[in-house]
Design a protein around this nucleic acid. Structure first.
Lengths: 152, 152
DNA sequence: TGCTTTATTGAGACTCAGTATCAATATAAA
DNA sequence: TTTATATTGATACTGAGTCTCAATAAAGCA
């Protein structure tokens, strides 16, 4: 069985466990996400599907993304510009993001010291840590020459 | 001169430097923010003003918050629920936030090790760090008994 | 002080990402 | 197949935040 098919099977099981149905739209959306390593917004996914002659409504993309997020297939991230981004979560261990303010490029990072400090700090406040957001905003290597000219 | 008046003077200077005018609405909004230690959304500030018989339009609150943010008087924060929060930034050193998923309570924290790691990590990627968001979501001490009953 | 210029205000129209509604359709189990 | 019901697509709606514009109010100047 291919990796792709095993993911579809896993999705099918997830749906069945919730009394949901496996539809061609849901499969197409999941396959599109599995085929991408990017951090995309809803319309990026919609247009990617359309470029492959797959017509799905925007509402269905949003609805499916919600199911995929709950099932652990995608990660929904808010980078503060008013639009959520979705990334294929399956092959990835936990990580946080550096976000370029110029080009929107996203660099993933993890740091065990930071992870450990978070646990330590929340314990100090008797706060039960569920999840975290750690985003470093700045200018990526490629954008620094252009940004310098603009006085950033 | 009182601390409050020195802040108003500072605000006046900031406005003048930009060719902006000192209006009663702007003063009222700044004073309301200076009097609060909370992380409030636009309407909280609007209703706080109204409870003091000060009538200002929502558009003016948004416009003034933008000026105050640029001038370093307030910090605008996105906690991921679709509404921005604004906090009085003047008396505060840099800090990040723990956010209770049950009651919305916000606990401030700083950790020099984390700050140092951020600098180290961005340097590794030749990324010019401008600002960061670090939010720890979970259940605060007060909400843990209730949350445990709901199976969180 | 009064005059003039122009920034500001308030009211409400507008934007836009995301959600809700609902009739038509498709899935899955019998 | 048939049947029950989940899903879809089209579109109306929501809500935070922004824009527009005529009326108003600062601030500099005579």
């Amino acid at each position: 069985m291919t990796i792709k098919n095993s993911n579809i099977e896993h999705f099918k099981d997830t749906l069945q466990a919730e009394g949901l149905r496996l539809t061609s739209q849901r499969i197409a959306i999941l396959e599109d996400i599995l085929a991408s390593e990017e951090h995309r917004e809803c319309d990026d996914i919609l247009f990617s599907l359309r470029s492959n002659q797959i017509s799905v409504s925007r509402a269905t993309v949003y609805r499916t993304l919600e199911i995929l997020e709950k099932g652990g297939f995608v990660r929904k991230m808010n980078i503060g510009d008013g639009r959520f981004r979705y990334e294929n979560k399956l092959p990835k261990p936990h990580h946080d993001h550096m976000i370029c303010l110029e080009c929107g490029r996203i660099i993933e990072f993890v740091d065990q010291e930071i992870e450990a400090r978070q646990v330590h700090l929340t314990k100090q406040h008797n706060f039960k840590l569920v999840r975290h957001i750690h985003q470093l905003f700045g200018i990526c290597e490629d954008c620094q020459p252009a940004a310098a000219n603009k006085g950033v």
